[in-house]
């Protein structure tokens, strides 16, 4: 077993809740609560969860685009969270991010050459070399070097996302964090971007953290998958085990809610429709966070938070995990 390229250890990120005239802090939302994840070299780790589960905060905390409150993010022997500004600049060269909205994440006043070449300028690369590198990278993401003189508004959504990817790749990072990279795109364009990411990974051997709410997309791109709920990882494991035999009732119900583009399968499926909404992260339930919506919750889940335990190749935080070949439907009928 090789060493992880990135180690996230007990990461905690809190957002203050401010109220009243003086905007005093009256409490905290734990957007990330003790999240620990290892990213292995060359793998794609998918992170799924519903809105408010902390998946975007996770991506941003790793790069310190939001400052975590505690924990460690170990990369190449140093901790990203304690690095000083020059150290951080060096680390960010290796750790890059692509954002969700290709309409909002590109400066409308800059031509593509400058948007994509900016990271090089920050790292002191000369203008001539920048131009050459930008042309090269634009070609790699399926655009043309002459596109470099144009402005973001001249491109479609899919092309803009390619530009965002080019900008992230230009420093040859070893870890790429993708925060909902295809959710703003139409399916036909989404497939183009997913193929592009797959090709880039095969060629450049980079590790990816792929954050998305779409479970089908995550299944398609990931080697391993982490499922988050209310700021915690509730299940993490290799893709096949997690999708085919989910252990956590949340993973199982999330998968059962995904509509499949196949009428025959849809007709034969037994769907578990979760009741209610995700509770407010400002007032998480006692014990297990998921218990308020969990169809198989018991007394113990109210009082005691389940610890992460390994079973059959995955890690799961549940007192009553589903067994091998046991589905949530069969547990409910037992």
């Amino acid at each position: 077993m090789s060493e992880p390229i990135l180690r996230i250890e007990n990461l905690v990120t809190k957002y203050p809740i401010r109220a009243g005239l003086l905007r005093r802090t009256v409490g905290h939302v734990h957007a990330l609560n003790n999240v620990s994840i290892d990213l292995m070299p060359k793998e794609t780790l998918g992170v799924v969860g519903e809105s408010g589960c902390g998946k975007t905060t996770l991506g941003r905390s790793i790069l310190r685009l939001v400052e975590p409150d505690s924990g460690r993010v170990m990369y190449g022997g140093s901790d990203v969270l304690t690095a000083n500004s020059s150290g951080l600049r060096g680390l960010r060269k290796d750790l890059q991010i692509v954002f969700q909205d290709p309409y909002a994440s590109l400066n409308p006043r800059l031509p593509i050459n400058e948007i994509v070449g900016e990271p090089l300028a920050v790292h002191g690369v000369t203008k001539a070399e920048r131009r050459a590198r930008v042309g090269e990278i634009l070609r790699e993401v399926g655009l043309l070097p002459e596109h470099g003189n144009r402005y973001p508004h001249e491109f479609s959504g899919g092309q803009r996302q390619r530009i965002g990817i080019a900008r992230a790749l230009i420093l040859n990072p070893s870890v790429l964090i993708l925060d909902e990279p295809v959710s703003a795109l139409d399916v036909s364009i989404q497939a183009q971007i997913l193929n592009l990411l797959r090709r880039i990974q095969l060629e450049k051997q980079i590790s990816m953290i792929f954050i998305a709410h779409d479970l089908s997309v995550v299944r398609h791109v990931s080697d391993r998958v982490a499922v988050m709920y209310l700021g915690r990882v509730v299940e993490i494991g290799d893709r096949t085990s997690l999708y085919e035999n989910p252990k956590h009732p949340y993973t199982a119900s999330l998968l059962s809610a995904v509509p499949l583009a196949d009428p025959v399968t849809e007709r034969s499926r037994k769907r578990i429709v979760l009741q209610g909404d995700v509770p407010s992260p400002a007032h998480p339930p006692s014990g297990c966070e998921f218990r308020t919506r969990c169809p198989i919750a018991q007394e113990r889940c109210v009082t005691e938070r389940p610890a992460m335990q390994s079973m059959e190749g995955v890690s799961v935080a549940c007192h009553f995990p589903l067994g091998r070949d046991e589905s949530l439907v069969s547990r409910l009928n037992r």
């Binding site: 497939a191 997913l194 990931s222 196949d262």
Partner: peptide, 20 residues
């Protein structure tokens, strides 16, 4: 083409998706 470009829960992961 539209049907083919969806990464299906039933398809083979990691393969090249058909695109338009």
């Amino acid at each position: 083409a539209l049907l083919d470009s969806i990464p299906s829960q039933l398809g083979v992961p990691g393969t090249e998706l058909k695109t338009i």
